[in-house]
Design a protein around this nucleic acid. Sequence first.
DNA 1: GTCATAGTTATCGTATACGATTTCGTACTC
DNA 2: GAGTACGAAATCGTATACGATAACTATGAC
Lengths: 233, 233
Amino acid sequence: MTETAVGSVALGEKTGSKSEQAYTAVKARIVEGTYTPGYRLVLAKIAEDLGVSVVPVREAIRRLEAEGLVKFERNVGATVSGIDPTEYLYTMQTLSIIEGAATALSAPLIDSVAIARARAVNAEMRDCLEHFDPVRFTALNQDFHSVLFEHCPNPHILDLVHRGWNRLASIRASTFRFVPGRAQESVKEHEALLQLIESNADANTIEHAARRHRSATLDAYLAQSNAGSVSAH
Amino acid sequence: MTETAVGSVALGEKTGSKSEQAYTAVKARIVEGTYTPGYRLVLAKIAEDLGVSVVPVREAIRRLEAEGLVKFERNVGATVSGIDPTEYLYTMQTLSIIEGAATALSAPLIDSVAIARARAVNAEMRDCLEHFDPVRFTALNQDFHSVLFEHCPNPHILDLVHRGWNRLASIRASTFRFVPGRAQESVKEHEALLQLIESNADANTIEHAARRHRSATLDAYLAQSNAGSVSAH
DNA sequence: GTCATAGTTATCGTATACGATTTCGTACTC
DNA sequence: GAGTACGAAATCGTATACGATAACTATGAC
């Protein structure tokens, strides 16, 4: 747990192919922040670094482009996707919808052991707040939701969740995360969510709560940059 | 209108590149049914057909793989994605969630002109039922929802809708569509949806109705293959 | 001093080529 | 006759090479 790169299902191409290798390597560097937004991804350079030719690197970059982690411009090159506030809004809004559904679908399948694990993670998050460790907090936050989703019955939805997370990870270093007080609320909402799941609340209620949990972060950000609410109801 | 291939935002790579050309061509053939599920996509063959080399074709195929239209197996090759009932369930369930959200987000932005257009399309669909023209019916069905979504404020969500549609298009020729009576209900639900939008119903109500509209088709299919309901509440 | 223009460099896009892997067919054995 | 082992054909995966395009730089005109 507490890893950074969330792998979307390795469609096709088993590990071992140079293409896959390049994909994994570049993705990791983006998600962990080695390549920051705006960073220029030169095919030949990456190819040399990884000891492969440009063809598989190009393929990897295009794949990352499809996931939104990279921006590609014809005859110009690729750069790590940036921190456009509009994109942030789109991503968070989409994620709130997807995560809401994922939570509702997973809820009936979550057993007491998983709940306990989630609670332990949440306790650690609370510690992080006291010791002010935002990096670890963010990682644990992902762990928390990973526990909830680990038995999600629809892999498509799970994949969309992971894409959203990776998208956010690529802009993690930016200003977006830092909204005063939001983290504290977040921990409380986690506990509330667990109680809803434990009490077998109906799917609608759980979905709404989970959705609100994500969109509240977006609202907090928007409020800070003095704009109106755009959360999904 | 009434076109088949719904283009997901042309990320990067302007038109004119061989890669893009290959992507568009192969995608169209899949969506329109020239390449049926299971069809073997041999890189060299496609390259020759299109008058390009294998490299851009390979890139195009990988892109289609990322969208779920194609299945790729290392050192074996690519085939058009099939009609696995489980996949159908996953796709429909995801689509019901995404379309629900898309409709709710779009509703406040739909003007009376668009409503009128949608109604006209729906009337045509009713005609198709009488003259039994399922192909046209399906195309019009997409048109109907396209009208609703044309001002969707979140392009990410719109893109997910299109991906789902294309995914379904690739299995259109299969048995899934044919559930007795469902088409008639569908037309009625369209009208109900339009009335909700006209009357400025709240976002939750609209979202729920739109979601139900899609998941009802899934339920009908599942009922026919004598299984229980798995629709999202 | 600033702007336009031509030449240079960096980088991409794609073709071709070849080694690697799988699949299929055939012959051989039990 | 069925199964196995070998060999040939098909196809993929990647390296290399080169033409095309855009970015950069320096030179000259006003």
